[in-house]
């Protein structure tokens, strides 16, 4: 029988823990993933060009620049107009319950992982004070994100139509069309699996069986709950999809990649 002197409070302090598994791996991967996407998104939005591919009759608009406010309203802001739109998905994702968990853990180490020590913060207020009390506005970003989804669905459907040699539009399918549909489908699943949506659609009810309306809302709530169960997965797939859609269109517009017409 041997004895090891160690106090029970030995795991106080950043990263201190008695855990032996690779608890640091997940927050590290999230940090890398979110930082990479953030840097790319800011760079792509800053460019203000190569966001539209119209080669071979296609019409692919990058999701970072949708809706195309410049074409709709015809004005030329002194900065890339992507910034007029991007604050909506940024706010939606930043206040999303999944992403909150992700960045509280990976960026703020609050906590970095379960049962792992964190930086000493005598004034911890959670989400009760500014700025994190603003997380309560998540549902408003959800409403705005729904408007963007309409625009993205329009873009995906528009990508099904190719301008022919006579100037008319023909139904078609390119790899870019698939990329844009993948993007909008994953974003739709992410948005409708949102916890605020789940609450608004039926979670706020206490009695699901009380009326015809509540029974309908119960069915919708169950559907949203199925999406919500995989909210984290949808969050990451949709993040990848939106980044890749922009990259694909950008590289096609720059002539580096060539869109393949499938039909």
């Amino acid at each position: 029988m041997t004895q090891t002197e160690l106090t029970a409070a030995a795991d106080h302090g950043v990263g201190m823990t008695a855990r032996r598994d690779a608890w640091w791996l997940q927050p590290l991967l999230i940090f890398i993933g979110l930082t990479t996407f953030g840097v790319y998104a800011i760079w792509a939005a800053w460019q203000g060009n190569n966001y539209l591919y119209v080669g071979h009759g296609a019409y692919y608009l990058s999701p970072f620049y949708s809706p195309d406010l410049q074409a709709i309203f015809g004005f030329q802001p002194p900065f890339s107009f992507a910034f007029l739109v991007l604050w909506i998905p940024l706010g939606f994702r930043a206040s999303c319950y999944y992403y909150r968990k992700a960045y509280y853990r990976s960026y703020m180490l609050d906590p970095p992982a379960c049962a792992v020590g964190e930086p000493k913060n005598r004034c911890y207020q959670g989400e009760r004070k500014f700025p994190f009390i603003l997380q309560n506005l998540h549902r408003y970003f959800f409403y705005l994100a729904l408007l963007l989804l309409v625009s993205l669905w329009y873009d995906a459907i528009r990508a099904l139509f190719f301008r022919g040699p006579n100037g008319g539009l023909q139904l078609g399918l390119g790899v870019g069309t698939l990329v844009l549909f993948f993007n909008v489908i994953t974003l739709t699943a992410f948005s409708f699996g949102c916890n605020s949506c789940r609450h608004l659609i039926g979670g706020q009810l206490n009695c699901f069986s009380c009326s015809c309306t509540t029974r309908t809302r119960y069915k919708l709530w169950r559907g949203v709950s199925v999406l919500n169960l995989k909210h984290m997965e949808w969050a990451w797939v949709s993040l990848f999809a939106v980044g890749f859609a922009d990259l694909y269109i950008r590289l096609c517009a720059m002539g580096i990649w060539h869109d393949v017409r499938l039909w």
Partner: peptide, 27 residues
């Protein structure tokens, strides 16, 4: 409730696999 920052450790350790964060705290 506002002190909770939904980092889901409670859900991770629950031996009864109750979805504490998604089904109780967030609602």
């Amino acid at each position: 409730l506002g002190l909770c920052n939904v980092t889901k450790c409670c859900t991770e350790v629950c031996p009864e696999e109750i979805h504490i964060t998604d089904n109780a705290i967030i609602p």
